[in-house]
Amino acid sequence: MLRLESLTKRYRTGDLALSEISLAIPAGQVVGLIGPSGAGKSTLIRCVNRLVEPTSGRIWLDDLELTRLGRRGLRHARRRMGMIFQEYALVERLTVMENLLSGRLGYVSFWSSLIRRFPPADIENAFRLLDRVGLMEHADKRADALSGGQRQRVGIARALAQEPEILLVDEPTASLDPKTSRQIMRLLREVCAERGLAAIVNIHDVLLAREFMMRIVGLRAGAIVYDGGPDGLTPAVLTEIYGEEDWAASSDLSDTGPSPRPGVPDTDELVGAL
């Protein structure tokens, strides 16, 4: 169970990225975080593992208050949160296996990681994960020799190697073609189900979000404007999140949307109502 309480982030430049976000994500739930660029999606998931320091507010992972941890405690807590990145963020010049084993860095001593001597159980598990994401024969290749979809699979396996309780996923399909994007999303859902993992997935593609997420949180200008099931993403709600657009024309949303004519003019009022 991950809980955010009045989480606020103001950057040094003065930009308010997140304001008073409160959110609870129970174990096993896969939550899609949607919203326009600059809405604070990336900042939100980076605040959870404190790659970005929140300005105020509190975050709990089960009974552990992440926002109060010192350096050492934070490193230990980060092991419990696997992160998957936009454009993979693999260490390009290391082998696939080294990238996978880097998920174990929080568990092994500096010296054994320096000479690349990981415990046999870690290596066995890494191979199992590599097999799970279908890249068994690529273990010794360098990460920059893989295709985009393959790299993101390594990214997922690296996060899983941490044996996390929750996945923080930042735009996993941002640089992938539509088919590969769907494969990656499916893989994410599957591994979450297999391991009972919760996940927060930043995603810009509404169709993918509707198809693969259990719950959607819509973010606009640093505030939550929608929180509910994927079926609730009506054109009206999308307008509220992203601004006015002819949603019906770009998707099959008109099937489920109650209003065939999107574009509620009075958005501000609706935000206030939520």
């Binding site: 490193r75 980060r78 990145f85 260490v91 880097s102 860095l105 990681s113 941490q162």
Partner: peptide, 16 residues
Amino acid sequence: EAVRATGAGPAQVLDY
């Protein structure tokens, strides 16, 4: 950032 997110220490971040 990705290496740091795994819970690696500063020396490990340097190394990996």
